[in-house]
Design a protein around this nucleic acid. Structure first.
Lengths: 208, 208
DNA sequence: GCTAGTTTGTGAATGAATTCACAAGCCTGA
DNA sequence: TCAGGCTTGTGAATTCATTCACAAACTAGC
C-alpha cells in the first residue's frame, strides 16, 4: 500500500466528523466543495485525499453521506472496539480516564497502571488502578492494542520500552519528551508546551 | 520575514528542551548531529532550521549551549511573561488550570470564564472563575495575549468569535471541532480524538 | 433521448520541505 | 605556522504535498 501522509489521515478524521453531523441531520449527500469549506481546505484536496483509498462519489451528485461515513470509519479502523490502557495515574491520566470522547468512539479503557502504592487498588472513574509490576502479565492476557502514556517525563522512555516489549504497537504520549520507538510502533505525542510555543512564536514574529 | 514552516517551529521547541537539559548538566557545547539524534531528525535539518534565524554555531566546534538556548527562547518568544485566560471551566479547563507546565514556561493564567452560575465565583487552583459576561470588559482592561478555549464543541465557534473581537490573537483550542478564524489570528488545536484515529489508522493499515 | 448543469477522479504543474554534498571556517597539537 | 580533523552554513537536488484543470460521468428537465 502506498504510504499515506499524516496530514491526509488527519483530514479524513475531520471529514468523518462532518459526515456524522450530517448523518444526524438526515442530509443524504455532500459534495467535496462542501466538505472542503467546513474543513478549511479545498475541494481538490478532499477528492485527492479520498482517491488514495478508492472512489466513493458519484459524478454530478457528490458523496452519499452514510456510504462515505462507513468507508471512512473503515479506513480509519473505527469499525471495531479498541482496548486502551493508561500508564500513569497522575493528573493527566486521571483527566483522560474521565474523558468521554474515548468510549464515544469505540475505545474502551481496560485498566490504568501506576507505581505509587497509595494509588494502586483505587479506582478512577470505574477503572481499576493496578500495580505497574503486573503490566506485562496483564497485557499478555488481556491484549490491549493501545497504550496511553501519562507518566512523568523522566520515566516516559523507560515505560515506552516496556510497552514496546509487551507487544503493544500504538502509543498516545502525553509526556512532554521526545520518545524513540522502534520501527513497527506508532507513537503520537500530544504536547501542549509545544503548541503554546507555536503561539508565542506567531505572536512574537508576526509583525516583521 | 520569510514564512517559517510550522514543522520548523515545533522542532525548535524540541531543540530548546534538549538545550535546557544540557544546561542543567553543565554541558557547554553541542553539535547539530547530537541535537538531531536526540530529536529524531537529521543534522542537516537542525542546521537548516536554525539558518532561517541566523548563524549560531562555530564551525568545527558546534553550538554553545547557553547561547543557542538564549537565541531559541528569543525566537520562540519565551523571553517575556504571557498572560493566559481559560474560557470554559469544565473538566478540561480544570485540568489545564492545574497544569504546571504553564507557569514553568512563563505563562500566567489570569482568569477562567464560564457561563454556569454554579461555577462562577468559585476558584480553580487559585484561579478565579468569572462570569463570561465580563469577558470583553476584562480583556480590554487586563490585556491577556492568549486564550485557551475549553468549551463544549457546539459553543466553540461562537466563543472564538468573541475572543477574536476582544482583540486576543492567539488561541489554544481543546474543543474537538474545526474552527474558522480570521487571518490575523493563530489558532492551534489539540484534538485527542484525531490523534487516536491516527493510531487506529496505522494499526489497521500497517499490514498491507 | 437530448441538452444543460453539476461534480467527481486524476494526471500534470506547482509549491513546500527535506536531504545532499561540499566549501568555508575553526580548533588542536606539533 | 601549518596540517589534520571536525562541524557549520547553504545552494542544489530531491522528495513529498497541494493545487490546477479538464475529461468523464451522472442528474434533471423537457
Amino acid at each position: 500500500m502506498k504510504r499515506i501522509a499524516d496530514s491526509t489521515v488527519r483530514r479524513l478524521s475531520i471529514y468523518l466528523r462532518f459526515l456524522e453531523e450530517f448523518e444526524g441531520r438526515g442530509k443524504s449527500t455532500v459534495s467535496s466543495e462542501e466538505l472542503a469549506r467546513r474543513g478549511g481546505t479545498t475541494s481538490a484536496q478532499v477528492r485527492k485525499d479520498l482517491s488514495f483509498f478508492g472512489s466513493f462519489g458519484k459524478r454530478g451528485l457528490g458523496y452519499s453521506v452514510p456510504e462515505l461515513g462507513t468507508a471512512l470509519r473503515e479506513i480509519l479502523g473505527l469499525g471495531k472496539e479498541w482496548r486502551v490502557v493508561i500508564v500513569g495515574a497522575g493528573k493527566i491520566g486521571a483527566a483522560l480516564a474521565q474523558y468521554r470522547g474515548f468510549r464515544q468512539r469505540g475505545f474502551v479503557i481496560t485498566a490504568a497502571y501506576d507505581t505509587n502504592p497509595d494509588k494502586i487498588g483505587r479506582k478512577l472513574e470505574g477503572i481499576e488502578i493496578r500495580d505497574m509490576k503486573r503490566f506485562e502479565n496483564d497485557v499478555a492476557e488481556e491484549k490491549p492494542e493501545i497504550a496511553v502514556l501519562a507518566t512523568p517525563p523522566d520515566e516516559a522512555q523507560g515505560v515506552l520500552d516496556r510497552i514496546a516489549r509487551s507487544g503493544i504497537r500504538a502509543v498516545l504520549n502525553f509526556a512532554p519528551v521526545q520518545l524513540h520507538a522502534t520501527g513497527d510502533m506508532t507513537v503520537k505525542t500530544v504536547n501542549m508546551a509545544m503548541e503554546l510555543e507555536g503561539l508565542t512564536f506567531a505572536l512574537t514574529n508576526s509583525h516583521e
